[in-house]
């Protein structure tokens, strides 16, 4: 009887698990992935090697256990570098251009390409820009809602630098962690969100 109920419980656990029952052997998946990109330059191939956070988020289909989430939060928080002078607010006008720019990081880009944040791909920001995506939440009036509070600005900087420090397995790229955006660019984006003059808050 105990064996039967144990079996039933396991069957239910399998049904509820986010990962499908016929999960592929990770070593086999790694071989397929390696072969898929085998002709790419070595520095590009390095990109397919996952760090611990990417690995956990992939394996759990972005639903880490509470213990895994805690570990990710701690690890990613430790990676954040704040500006040396403590000022997280840059130029909101430059920030707006960075939010519009979707270039950078693609194998079709040349080395002169300046990386953009491509924020509008996923977020609503300034109300006048109607071409925005819905993969992330609307950030319209982000600073206004937060009463232009300095601690909130610091938090916004941290979120752009490393979203997974705030939300483990967030879909948002870890822009600062990967050095995809510079500290100055992240400051400009923080100002775009938090400055009272920014169109985000008009």
């Amino acid at each position: 009887m105990r064996t039967i109920s144990f079996t039933v419980a396991m069957a239910f656990a399998a049904l509820l698990s986010p990962v499908s029952a016929q999960s592929a052997d990770p070593a086999l998946v790694a071989t397929y992935i390696k072969n898929t990109f085998k002709s790419a330059p070595a520095e590009w191939q390095a990109r397919i090697t996952q760090d611990e956070t990417q690995k956990i988020c992939s394996e759990t289909h972005n639903s880490p256990t509470p213990a895994q989430a805690k570990a990710i939060e701690a690890r990613e928080t430790a990676s954040i570098v704040f500006p040396p002078d403590g000022n997280v607010m840059g130029d909101w006008k430059k920030g707006e251009a960075i939010a519009q720019n979707g270039r950078g990081g693609q194998f079709s880009d040349d080395e002169k390409t300046v990386n953009g944040g491509n924020c509008y791909a996923c977020h609503q920001l300034a109300k006048a820009e109607v071409s925005y995506g819905t993969l992330g939440p609307s950030l319209t009036e982000y600073g206004k809602i937060r009463k232009f509070d300095a601690a909130e600005a610091k938090q916004a900087y941290a979120k752009i630098y490393n979203a997974q420090a705030v939300q483990p397995c967030s879909n948002m790229p870890r822009f600062g962690f990967h050095k995809f955006l510079s500290i100055d660019q992240i400051k400009d984006l923080t100002a775009f969100l938090m400055s009272p003059e920014s169109p985000v808050n008009k």
Partner: peptide
């Protein structure tokens, strides 16, 4: 399926 969920690279996509 595993590749569909495989996050990697400079944008974690």
């Amino acid at each position: 399926e595993a590749m569909f969920y495989y996050r990697a690279g400079v944008a974690d996509f």
